[in-house]
């Protein structure tokens, strides 16, 4: 009976993942490996960026027109924020579908999302990346790593650490069923600062982590160390988010750009 419960939990979390996220690894890999009839439009310089903005981004971000006279770095930063807000919204819906999450203390739900969404976001972002670039605009565009590196500082420092993480993370060859449990484990984490009912969350976390361990053993029988490797990735993601939050604070201080209110809430008093 216990095994049946664990399988049910794994299935519920995987179904919530497929239902709530617009992009997933299977979709992204199909596009990145050229197995679609519509290959993504490649953004690799200022000219192709402008072309993409006139077509792909205009569809995605209605307010992009207000930024048309701003420099490319600011426009790209705005697009990153829009994608982040959308993913945070998806992650919130996903979290609510994880069994037990919605019955947690509401303050604790807020805390778990505040600290978990960026770690989850960067873990999932790896699915849309290869060594050369990143899928954008729902997979209709591909922005090259070199172009992102060529932007002026501090904007050029934004994505390169995510690519470096993604290359190592993608080497683990997780699929969406693994990622669904990994993302749930990131969110249901008992050691976030300020949690009220830690024991309640730890019970949830233990069952998700146990299911993740069993799932990895079944899904990757040749990689017996995959589970401890993934636990290490949790620590790497925390570091990645800390550095990202510092960079965003620097951009906010030194650049004339606005930060979306939802992202402001998340970054405020974070670390």
């Amino acid at each position: 009976p216990q095994l049946a419960d664990q399988k049910t939990l794994a299935r519920q979390i995987y179904e919530a993942y497929l239902k709530n996220f617009n992009m997933n690894k299977a979709k992204a890999r199909t596009i990145l490996t050229g197995k679609t009839s519509n290959p993504p439009f490649v953004v690799h310089d200022m000219e192709t960026l402008q072309l993409a903005e006139q077509t792909l981004v205009a569809k995605m971000v209605g307010s992009a027109g207000a930024l048309k006279d701003r420099e490319a770095e600011v426009r790209i930063f705005h697009c990153c924020q829009c994608t982040s807000v959308e993913t945070v919204t998806e992650l919130t819906e996903f979290a609510k579908s994880v069994p037990g999450f919605s019955s947690l203390d509401l303050n604790d739900q807020v805390t778990l999302l505040k600290y978990g969404v960026y770690e989850a976001l960067f873990a999932m972002l790896a699915s849309s990346m290869n060594k050369d670039g990143l899928l954008v605009a729902y997979g209709s565009g591909f922005i090259t790593r070199e172009f992102l590196k060529s932007l002026r500082r501090p904007f050029s420092d934004m994505m390169e650490p995510k690519f470096q993480f993604a290359m190592k993370f993608n080497a683990l060859e997780l699929d969406d069923s693994d990622l669904a449990l990994f993302v749930a484990a990131i969110i249901c984490c008992g050691d976030r600062p300020g949690l009220v009912n830690v024991s309640h969350i730890e019970v949830m976390q233990e069952s998700i982590v146990r299911v993740l361990q069993l799932h990895l053993l079944a899904n990757h029988p040749d990689d017996t160390f995959l589970f401890p490797k993934l636990l290490q990735k949790l620590a790497d993601l925390r570091q990645l988010v800390t550095e990202h939050a510092q960079l965003v604070q620097e951009i906010k201080k030194t650049e004339d750009t606005s930060l979306h209110p939802l992202l402001q809430e998340i970054y405020r008093d974070m670390y």
């Binding site: 829009c82 959308e86 609510k96 300020g194 809430e265």
Partner: peptide
């Protein structure tokens, strides 16, 4: 905490209200 995270709180309580991009 809920007061400092009004949008997150709203997202948690009401899935139908969109977040202005």
């Amino acid at each position: 905490l809920k007061e400092k995270h009004k949008i997150l709180h709203r997202l948690l309580q009401n899935s139908t209200s969109p977040v202005e991009l």
